[in-house]
Amino acid sequence: MAAGGKWSDLTRRVTSAVILIGIGVMLALSTGLMLWAGVALFMALTFWELARMTGWKGPARFETPLGRSRPIVLAVAAGLSLFAALGLPSVSALILLIPIIAGLPGAVPRDRLTYAVFGYAIMAVGFELVHLRQEYGLPFILWLMGVVIISDILGYFAGRMIGGPKFWPSLSPKKTWSGTVAGWVGALIFGLILWLSGLAGAALIFLSPVVAFAGQMGDMAESWLKRRAGVKDSSNLIPGHGGFMDRFDAVSGAVLAIMMLSWVMGLPQVGF
């Protein structure tokens, strides 16, 4: 396979799917404080990547010999804030804001709003993931992960095989309308299969492509952030495959969509 061929990033896609499945397994095996700690750690690492991409400087007293490790301060604040918020639901919104407020003055001026929006989104995703796992159970999480993975895989292959007009070339030159629509169709079929199997209500047929689209928008949002920061990957925490934000952007978009939908409608039950 030629390094520059249209299938050159297939390995990266497979790795992403494996990582997402691994996250699902982590959520499946974790409960209570272990679940909280695992999600808080994951979101802290993602917050570290965000802080680096938005040029957070921090007070001089937080300087380290490595220099570039200063965003660790915000990462620790993010993890601790999220963990505390999970145990104190009445004040969770205020606790989630701690790392955003603490880091805002040190961010590059042009990226302060970007830092605040993405920072709160990261924290909200972590909080909502735990809520969904605890309130709706493992099957719901597996459905959510399944929609994202199926949409990504079908979108990848359809885009490479069919090609055609680009979906949003200024942000993602490789994504095509054919791949995008294939992702929606794959998610719809996934929801249809669950309904026909008696594992979920008919609402999942229509909700699945909506969640798939939200996942695609999460991917686009992170692509925009990386272009703004002038980087190819959010970090090198996953050698050869970028950072946690790179692997988790679509899931983040899907989770945020579910969170907002839950404000206006009841979420369907999924049972395996």
Rank of each mutant, 00 (worst) to 15 (best):
M34G: 01
L35A: 13
L35H: 00
W36M: 13
W36I: 14
A37M: 07
A37T: 14
A37G: 04
G38D: 10
G38R: 04
G38W: 10
V39P: 02
V39F: 05
A40C: 02
A40P: 06
A40M: 15
A44V: 05
L45E: 01
L45V: 07
L45F: 00
T46Y: 05
F47I: 02
F47A: 13
W48M: 02
L50G: 09
A51S: 11
A51Y: 07
M53Y: 05
T54Q: 14
G55R: 08
G55Q: 01
K57N: 12
G58P: 02
P59C: 11
A60S: 14
R61S: 02
R61Q: 00
R61F: 00
T64C: 04
P65F: 02
P65M: 09
R68F: 13
S69T: 13
S69G: 06
R70W: 07
R70T: 00
R70G: 01
R70P: 03
P71F: 13
P71W: 12
P71A: 12
P71I: 09
G79A: 05
G79E: 02
L82H: 14
L82Q: 13
L82A: 13
F83H: 00
F83N: 08
A84M: 03
A84G: 12
A85E: 04
A85R: 13
G87F: 06
G87E: 08
L88Y: 08
P89Y: 01
V91Y: 13
I95H: 11
